[in-house]
Structure formats: structure tokens, C-alpha cells
């Protein structure tokens, strides 16, 4: 499986385990509560606790370590940059001086604390979303969002994007292979050109695809609105699960804020 396909693959969300069996609405609500707590967290303990919990849960349901690392690599990079920038560009109390290419860089206490907090929030939030995505197929999440009142037009776009992202990824993969075997990536300059061609072609093909898909939808009665199935009532057990999991998150949040805040 290629790197791009691995990044977007939802194959683990299709497997059967205790997390995938939970109602997507339950998972979505708990995830939203967790995200809110992360947003208001005043120290990195709670966000890091969430990172550990999310990664452990993903590994517990047999998501390969490689995939978890791969998916966390981008947010880790972002968190690192945030930490560095905050540490050296904000605050006034110096805690360390560094020399870089003849320049003196001062790390401040306020910047370090603020960077740590923002970076941990980034990692915590992304971990929650990654876990949610790895144990829930996207279309089920969209249905759950509908239950929470997401506008129908947004959902339609989300559904179609989700459906066609895989078609376009296949197209990109094929085109890149076709370029590679004709030495399209044999130098940095050629790689830039080839990647640019792929980008442009994908846009044009997407527009063609949109026209054909719209025609096909019209032939099956589409009149500007995708009719979704009725969302069934949430089972009592799911309400309980949602309540307990939400409470656990809130208690963990409260404890970390009281003890260290």
C-alpha cells in the first residue's frame, strides 16, 4: 500500500472490535467533549494523558504502530514548530541562551510554557480525531453529525468528497507511477514539474468527474438534495456509554486542572 493510500485508508474502521461496535454518535459526542476539554486545558498533563489514551486504544484494537506513527507524524511536526516558535518569540524571562549560525536565541520561560501547552493541545486534539477516524468509517461519522444537526448541504459535500477522494487518489497514484517510469521524478526540478502536472490534471479530471457524476445522479432522480436514511433513535445502552465516557473525560480534566492548575 502506498504512503498516500495508507494515510487515507479506512480499512481499520471496517474491522470488528469493541470500539468499532460503539455507535458513531456516542464516539462523536465523547470526542467533542474531549476536544472542548483540550481547548480549555491550562496545562499539558490532560492533553498528554489524552494522547497516551488515544494511542493505546488504537494499538489495543490492532491498528499497526507504523500507521499510528505515520498519521501522527504531521501533527508532531506542527507541535514541534509551535513549541520552538513560542519558546523563542514570546515571553520575557530568559531560561536559556542558544547560539545558532552566529545568532543569539533566547528561550523564555513564558514562551516555553505557552509552547508546551499549545503543542500538547495540538497533539491531544489530533490524537482524538485520529482514533475516531481509525475506529469509525467516515460515512458513519457523517450520519452521526447529521444527528447532531450539521447542515444537510455540508453533509452532501462531505459524502461526495469522501466517496471521490479514493477515486482521485487512485488517479494520482496511477499518474505518478506513469511519470516515474518515464523518469518524471529523476531530479528535484523534474519532480516539481511532474507533481505540478499531476495537480493540474487532477483538477481538470475532477471537473469532468463532477459532470459525469451529476448526470448519473440526475438519472437516478437527484433533484439537488441527497435523501439520507432516517437516523434511528440512540439505544439506551449507548446513552449510558456516552454518559460514562464523557464523565470520565470531565473528571480527568477536572483533576488535572485542580492538581496542577
Amino acid at each position: 500500500m502506498s504512503l498516500i493510500s495508507e494515510l487515507f485508508s479506512d480499512i481499520f474502521a471496517q474491522q470488528d472490535n469493541w470500539l468499532t461496535r460503539l455507535d458513531p454518535r456516542t464516539k462523536l459526542v465523547v470526542a467533542l467533549v474531549t476536544l472542548l476539554c483540550l481547548m480549555f486545558s491550562r496545562n499539558p498533563v490532560f492533553p498528554l494523558f489524552i494522547v497516551v489514551l488515544a494511542v493505546t486504544s488504537a494499538l489495543a484494537v490492532k491498528v499497526p504502530v507504523r500507521l499510528v506513527v505515520l498519521r501522527l507524524s504531521a501533527p508532531l511536526g506542527v507541535a514541534f514548530i509551535v513549541l520552538v516558535l513560542q519558546s523563542v518569540m514570546t515571553g520575557s524571562t530568559p531560561i536559556a541562551n542558544l547560539q545558532l549560525l552566529g545568532h543569539k536565541i533566547t528561550v523564555t520561560q513564558e514562551g516555553w510554557h505557552s509552547g508546551r501547552l499549545i503543542a500538547s493541545r495540538v497533539l491531544g486534539s489530533v490524537s482524538v480525531l485520529l482514533l475516531l477516524g481509525m475506529v469509525t468509517p467516515a460515512h458513519r461519522l457523517f450520519h452521526a453529525s447529521r444527528w447532531l444537526g450539521m447542515p444537510k448541504a455540508w453533509l452532501e459535500i462531505a459524502f461526495l468528497m469522501y466517496r471521490y477522494i479514493f477515486v482521485l487518489l487512485d488517479l494520482v497514484a496511477d499518474m505518478m507511477v506513469a511519470q516515474r517510469v518515464r523518469l518524471g521524478y529523476s531530479s528535484v526540478r523534474k519532480a516539481w514539474t511532474s507533481a505540478g502536472i499531476v495537480g493540474g490534471t487532477v483538477i481538470v479530471r475532477s471537473m469532468d468527474q463532477a459532470v459525469r457524476t451529476h448526470e448519473a445522479m440526475l438519472l437516478r432522480g437527484y433533484r439537488g438534495e441527497i435523501p439520507f436514511e432516517t437516523v434511528p433513535a440512540l439505544a439506551r445502552r449507548q446513552w449510558w456509554t456516552m454518559g460514562v465516557a464523557g464523565a470520565v473525560v470531565l473528571i480527568a480534566f477536572g483533576l488535572t486542572q485542580v492538581r496542577l492548575g
Partner: peptide, 24 residues
């Protein structure tokens, strides 16, 4: 259609087959 990707607009098989009947 010649290319099924032009026509399959939903995420799962059941949802896609239901697309037309629901529109009716």
C-alpha cells in the same frame, strides 16, 4: 455508465443502491 465510478456516489453498497429509491 461505462465507468462505475461515475455512478457510484455513496460510501457503501446499500446506500448507493438506495439512492434512487429514496429520491423517488
Amino acid at each position: 455508465f461505462q465507468n462505475p465510478n461515475d455512478q457510484l456516489v455513496s460510501a457503501t453498497v446499500a446506500e448507493d443502491v438506495a439512492f434512487g429509491p429514496r429520491n423517488l
